[in-house]
Design a protein around this nucleic acid. Structure first.
Length: 447
DNA sequence: TTAGGGTTAG
């Protein structure tokens, strides 16, 4: 067994705790080597952990250090797994976990499982999650509240809501974080009633409520239009002093806006610190309710506050312009998106403009926008225009020919709808005939 | 002795 000089080791550990950059760390490391402490477990772990986890560290350097550790202990494995789990390439964390399983000396512990599950959650590795779950049961860690919360999140994030619930139900003790994980699992999977029901269970169990609980529940309220519950959560947030929490504030704005209570949204907005989400929620909230002028007002205020607009801000803005009939303004913003703000218009932005022209009775222009869009031949185009984005759907596509036909048919139908809205009987009649004849090239009809 | 959680998209 190696004997280290305790006073020197402690002194170096203290210095390491205060270290905040890689250059300084390398200097300390030289000092460690001079004093023969490079194999001191706490010191080598501390150095490795800093490189792997700290923002000012370096995962590449951590990998280099790890390679030179002769018999890495569990803590060293954990550092490298944790570092990769939170890095842009979480899959590397899984590689290290797999390698660790062949280590005859250092086995996984609660920390290993926790970090590995995080990586599985981030890369949506359901199979690996199930495998890790098996190891958790075999090694007797299935009673650990943090590990189980990781499992709930990982299964939930992979769409296995029922398994997540099973893990949750089998937890011997559930703390507030575990309950919150179950709420957000339901909420993100679209099981909003179940998410709201969890709140009743929490009340019975007396686990309390924090900002995470409120945000998860409010998100579900927004989706199902549960204004009463939203107002109740607003009161709870106020009682708990959570109204200056920007996440809570944003979730409240969104809830009030989605439930149609724009005054409520404005009141929350006026009393909180703001970020990009807050501005976007106001712009989208007013925009979708047809208040184009207000959407433009908040957009300009956002620019004045120095917040850069993203694609969602423009979506709300264009939607507001479309619903209020602000055609010139809408077109101007649509052009400014890329020319002034460097935001590439997506399929939904094109859909807004088509909708705007359609409502204004400018059907040729609407058709031209479809023709000029990068998705003119994309079967998903019309889905977007009708407000359903299936771009991430995993459903099998129909045959191309069938898509092509239904796409063009839908285009005509859509324009028909626009003509109907704009009370242009002639256009409407012309397009109805087109539908009836089912001409594939509708430009002939309109030209 | 190194852990787990949150919001916006017609």
């Amino acid at each position: 067994m190696m004997v280290f000089e305790t006073s020197k080791a402690n002194a170096i550990l203290t210095i390491l705790q205060g270290c905040n950059n890689l250059t300084r760390l390398k200097k300390i490391q030289a000092h460690v080597i001079v004093n023969g402490l490079q194999n001191h477990p706490a010191i080598s772990n501390s150095i490795l952990n800093f490189c792997a986890v700290s923002i000012s560290g370096s995962l590449a350097y951590a990998q280099h250090l790890f390679k030179h550790i002769q018999n890495p202990q569990t803590q060293a494995w954990n550092s490298i797994i944790r570092g990769f789990a939170q890095s842009p390439s979480p899959v590397q964390a899984i590689f290290y976990y797999n390698r660790m399983l062949f280590d005859p000396v250092s086995g996984p512990d609660t920390f290993t499982f926790s970090f590995t599950l995080k990586a599985c959650e981030r890369i949506k590795a359901l199979k690996k999650c199930e495998e890790v779950h098996g190891s958790i049961i075999r090694t007797g860690y299935e009673r650990d509240v943090v590990v189980c919360t990781g499992l709930v999140r990982c299964y939930g994030g992979n769409g296995c809501v029922e398994i997540a619930r099973m893990v949750f139900d089998n937890m011997p003790e559930k703390d507030l974080v575990a309950w919150n994980a179950m709420i957000s699992c339901y909420s993100q999977a679209g099981y909003h009633q179940e998410a709201l029901r969890i709140y009743d269970n929490m009340t019975n169990e007396n686990v309390g409520v924090d900002g995470f609980t409120v945000v998860g529940l409010l998100s579900s309220c927004s989706h199902v239009g549960a204004l009463n519950m939203g107002v109740k959560l607003h009161r709870i947030a106020s009682e708990k002093g959570l109204l200056r929490n920007v996440f809570v504030g944003n979730a409240l704005i969104d809830m009030y806006a989605k439930c149609g209570n724009l005054d409520g949204a404005l009141e929350v907005f006026n009393g909180m610190p703001r970020d990009m989400f807050s501005w976007n929620s106001m712009i989208v909230g007013f925009g979708v309710h047809g208040f184009g002028d207000e959407a433009i007002y908040f957009f300009n205020q956002m620019l004045e506050a120095g917040v850069r607009p993203n694609s969602i801000a423009f979506l709300g803005l264009l939607c507001g312009c479309s619903h209020q009939g602000l055609v010139e303004e809408g077109v101007e913003f649509f052009h400014q998106m890329s020319s002034k703000f460097n935001v590439k218009p997506g399929i939904k932005h094109f859909g807004c403009i088509v909708d705007m022209y359609g409502r204004a009775g400018k059907l040729e222009k609407a058709l031209k926008i479809i023709g000029d869009s990068p998705w003119q031949d994309d079967p998903e185009n019309l889905n977007c225009i009708h407000g359903h984005d299936h771009s991430e759907s995993t459903a099998k596509p129909k045959s191309l020919k069938q898509d092509e036909i239904s796409n063009k048919f839908s285009k005509i139908m859509y324009l028909c709808f626009g003509a109907f809205l704009s009370r242009s009987p002639f256009e409407f009649a012309k397009l109805l005939v087109a539908c009836w004849l089912f001409k594939p090239d509708i430009t002939v009809v309109l030209g």
